[in-house]
């Protein structure tokens, strides 16, 4: 049986209002694979993730999750269907306590709170100490742990990560990327957007360079790496 790719974008077009940002992007992410999505500012990386997770509606092309055509599905439905995006910045509710944030993560997959807490706190013991604290008052690293705990809990088919290293200390970043690797080994298809290309390429199986809303390069990390500076500095793409 030929399994479907976990995530498949075919000639996907998307943008805001009448402004098109992605001019036809094709991309496949297989289960248990990490794909790094690289590119300069304004290339459309975040737009791509937002479209893939249903926050934005595609303007054209196809979006397939597990082989199912899902164009036009809203974010909440796609979340139920196994797409999990951790947004840029901190993917947490700052005015809710840690426990209440975890309660929100039970919106997908029919999890129960005690189970959620146990699994989260065994992976991130520091969150257990801060159970009743407002999430917005924690350190950046702790907030990112809380955000990542959603990916850990809901057992998604597709995980979309948007700059999880932003503003964090290198040690914490290393820890988070170790988690990314573990999640991939569990069979999750991961699409990763990262400013620090080296960090991302170190964990990725494949890499894609996006520039001005189009894929300009794709291949193994080693193949893509040599074209990186050209892509970022606007050389011949």
């Amino acid at each position: 049986m030929t399994a479907h790719a976990a995530l498949e974008l075919i000639d996907l077009r998307a943008g805001y209002g009448s402004i098109e940002v992605l001019h036809g992007v094709s991309l496949t992410v297989e289960p248990a694979t990490v794909v790094a999505l690289l590119g300069p500012n304004g290339a459309g990386k975040t737009t791509l993730l937002r479209t893939t997770s249903g926050t934005l509606t595609p303007m054209g092309g196809c979006l397939h999750v597990g082989g199912v055509h899902v164009n036009g599905a809203d974010a909440a439905s796609l979340a139920q269907a196994g797409v999990c995006r951790i947004p840029e910045g901190r993917g947490i509710f700052p005015n809710l306590t840690v426990a209440e944030n975890l309660r929100m993560w039970t919106g997908v997959g029919g999890l129960r709170l005690p189970e959620v807490e146990e699994r989260t706190f065994s992976r991130f013991p520091r969150l257990g100490e801060r159970r009743g604290q407002l999430a917005g008052t924690m350190s950046g690293g702790e907030q990112q742990m809380l955000a990542m705990s959603r990916a850990l809990l809901v057992d998604p088919a597709v995980l979309l990560l948007d700059e999880i290293s932003m503003g964090l200390a290198p040690l914490i970043v290393a820890d988070l990327y170790e988690l990314v690797r573990t999640l991939a080994e569990e069979g999750i298809a991961i699409l990763l957007v990262e400013q620090f290309a080296q960090t991302a390429l170190a964990v990725a199986d494949y890499a894609v360079i996006l520039a001005q809303g189009r894929v300009t390069r794709r291949g193994t990390p080693a193949e893509v790496e040599e074209h990186l500076s050209a892509a970022y500095l606007g050389g011949a793409a």
Binding site: S53, G54, T55, D74, A75, A76, A79, Q80, C84, R85, P87, G91, I92, F93, P94, N95, L96, E100, M104, W105, G107, V108, R150, V154
Partner: peptide, 15 residues
């Protein structure tokens, strides 16, 4: 309260 904080994230969390 979560929707007040961040409606987009609430949708991503399945609400």
């Amino acid at each position: 309260r979560a929707v007040v904080d961040d409606p987009e994230l609430a949708a991503l969390a399945g609400t």
